[in-house]
Nucleic acid binder design. Structure first.
Lengths: 226, 226
DNA sequence: GAGTGGTCTAGACCACATA
DNA sequence: ATGTGGTCTAGACCACTCC
């Protein structure tokens, strides 16, 4: 019992063995440090890790408890589409369908926190895997963060943004939707096919950057370990 | 510049200000500790945090770099269905549709790593929000981990498992699917409606526990901050 | 061999929540 | 007022990896 990882594993073992049951408080850092003959900081590191994973709940003065109603946290890796497709061993393709300045629908302006009536750059693109269309992208871009327009026929907006405006914040939502007639035509599907929808809003320190809706063709799965 | 959070924020600021550009190595922990007048451990804590978020890449002897091809990590909170519905201010309801011992389909046995021909406990349940069906659950449960059967009419399998077999590992996948005729009837939808599908496989230290498929009615959104 | 991050220690003080 | 976790320090040694 020398490193914080061993300590973390031992704590997990005791929880799984029900020596420490959900809702019960476990010994203090000080007590555990003495029991295992390590510094308190080492115990702290292990317990902090487990608290971050949702296994433990820690409160000053109260102590450390095994979480009673665990909320499982799944961490998703969200790569750039091209890398995601290439990681599956498929050939990536990309086509810009439309690029125009336009007034965004109210819902999009609202998400970005922009006043109605402004104009944004709209991009519509199709992504291919081994030549088959698999992803339809509908993007609205704030022209203020794109002073010099790249050629979006050659590089996808997402890749350009990742390289030029990295380390943004934002939010992301997942849902399902039936393909409209237009979507079905572009993705070569039957109308009404179930699409996996990803919506992302992106900011760079209080400045709205982009809103995008990604419609994945059937067969797409987002997978992760718990 | 006294705490590790301030240091983390300053590092982020320099990256966003492009003082440190993606791909470039930043100064060593030692140098930053001297610059800011703190202990190296404090700088380490801040940089370790950012490396965990994917902002930095750290390698011994090489140094710390700003990530060139960032993979965004989204952390999803996956609560128990009842709590998720109640958190939206809706009334939760639950009905057990079927409970029987049966041989699972090969795909399910495969996921759980069980030999074909074994028998599992199958549960089919419907979850309601304000009286409307919103979620259809199809679950296969390893009877070995459920020696004493609770009354699944009263408590959902998920809640029972969370309370009695917490801190499992597993994996989870998200996709979209069109409602079959049977699913549409149970969820009170038109056939073919786009369902948001969550599939989970759960283990408790090498012992398969359960496989479950959750079919969410249209309107369901899974949301998180980036 | 040498430079970098990874970790541990022993001690200290602080922040916070409860009593 | 007190007990708990949260953090910081100064120093040390180790692990990895490039040269």
């Amino acid at each position: 019992m020398t490193g914080w990882e061993e300590i973390r594993d031992e704590v997990l073992r005791r929880i799984r063995a029900r020596l420490w049951v959900p809702g019960a408080t476990i010994p203090t850092e000080e007590a555990l440090a003495q029991e295992w003959g390590v510094a308190r900081a080492t115990v702290n590191r292990a317990l902090r890790e487990l608290a971050g994973e949702g296994v433990l709940e820690r409160r000053r003065k109260v102590g450390t408890r095994v979480t009673l109603h665990p909320v499982r946290k799944a961490t998703l890796d969200i790569p750039v589409t091209r890398r995601e497709i290439e990681a599956r061993g498929q050939r990536y393709g990309y086509r810009l369908l439309a690029q125009a300045e336009a007034e965004p629908p109210p819902a999009v302006a609202l998400r970005l926190g922009l006043p109605p009536g402004g104009r944004l750059l709209r991009l519509e693109c199709l992504h291919f895997a081994d030549g088959r269309p698999v992803l339809l992208e509908d993007r609205w871009l704030n022209p203020e963060v794109v002073p010099v327009l790249p050629d979006f026929h050659r590089i996808s907006a997402n890749e350009w943004l990742v390289a030029h405006v990295p380390w943004t914040t934002g939010d992301i939502a997942f849902s399902a939707a039936n393909a409209t007639a237009a979507e079905a035509r572009l993705l070569d599907l039957a109308e009404g096919a179930a699409l996996f929808i990803v919506e992302r809003t992106t900011w760079e320190s209080d400045c709205p950057v982009t809103w995008v809706r990604l419609a994945h063709a059937p067969g797409y799965r987002m997978h992760t370990l718990l």
